[in-house]
Design a protein around this nucleic acid. Structure first.
Lengths: 147, 147
DNA sequence: GGGCAAAATGAATCTGATTTTCAGTTTCAA
DNA sequence: TTGAAACTGAAAATCAGATTCATTTTGCCC
């Protein structure tokens, strides 16, 4: 089984919450983990369908919610449609508005500054989103040569 | 005319782009500028309708897009529905996930850090979004006393 | 190795925000 | 004044996301 650790992690979550372990959930997790980058539930559905034609969109959709709750996936939303990425260390995103490329970054300095700001306003922060939109190096070149 | 500067700014934008100056656009800008905070196009439509029953939702919707292009309004999206705010100095947002309160903040330190990160990855930044989600002071109290 | 309740599935439907269509109206430059 | 271009607004289309519900599976009991 290619992603044993995650499969076990899902199994534990299901057990702890009296949810059922189904072929569909296992299959969807498997395909999700094999997919690269920030994927929409629609795209993921297409990939799942290629290997498991019997699995419906609704199940993919609901399973991704489940994987988020289980801490195996993260939801993000750049352009109005929800995307999922494999959960790992916290990070933020650089998004190229021309080609759609998404690069992850981390910055402790910013994290600290956020804490200070939250304290200043008396907020208790649960999560945040921080996205920088612009042109990636390749697209800058392309823009220049084209005009 | 209550918001002469903005009305003139809109007029200039329309002229420069060969667009037409209509009562509707003037009226919508006026109501928008008088409204407080981060308003949805639906809310704005309700307010516009109170004073100008003949103006339709579509026109409000389209005019807000226009005002954004003209630099008089800014679009933001916290909870899946688009909100508009009056354009002014750049700032980011603290959002209370319980009561929906939105507080604006600015932080030069973070702006600088963003620049550094962009340079590191070769990106040219056009805009960004930075939102901190959590509980405002009032809601923290309420949560504590209730359980 | 049934029997069964709870949970899951998936096709279809609903929702709610946004966007487009299109016929009729208004603006504005000549 | 006139006509082309732009605008308006009711209605319809779109689109992602969420829900419904009849049917099937799973996990657990005996």
């Amino acid at each position: 089984m290619p992603h044993e650790v995650e499969q076990r992690s899902l199994a534990r979550y299901l057990e702890e919450h009296n949810l059922k372990h189904t072929r569909q959930r296992e299959a969807i997790l498997e395909v999700f983990l094999s997919a690269r980058g920030h994927i929409t539930s629609e795209d993921l559905y297409q990939q799942v369908r290629a290997r498991h034609p019997h699995i419906g969109y609704t199940t993919v959709y609901r399973t991704m919610k489940l994987l988020c709750e289980a801490g195996l996936a993260h939801e993000s939303n750049f352009d109005g449609t929800t995307r999922y990425e494999i959960a790992h260390e916290h990070h933020d995103h650089l998004v190229c508005v021309r080609c759609g490329k998404i690069v992850e970054f981390e910055c402790d300095l910013i994290e600290d500054a956020q804490e200070r700001i939250a304290k200043q306003y008396g907020f208790r922060i649960l999560r945040h989103r921080h996205e920088l939109y612009g042109h990636c190096p390749e697209c800058q070149k392309r823009v220049r040569t084209r005009g």
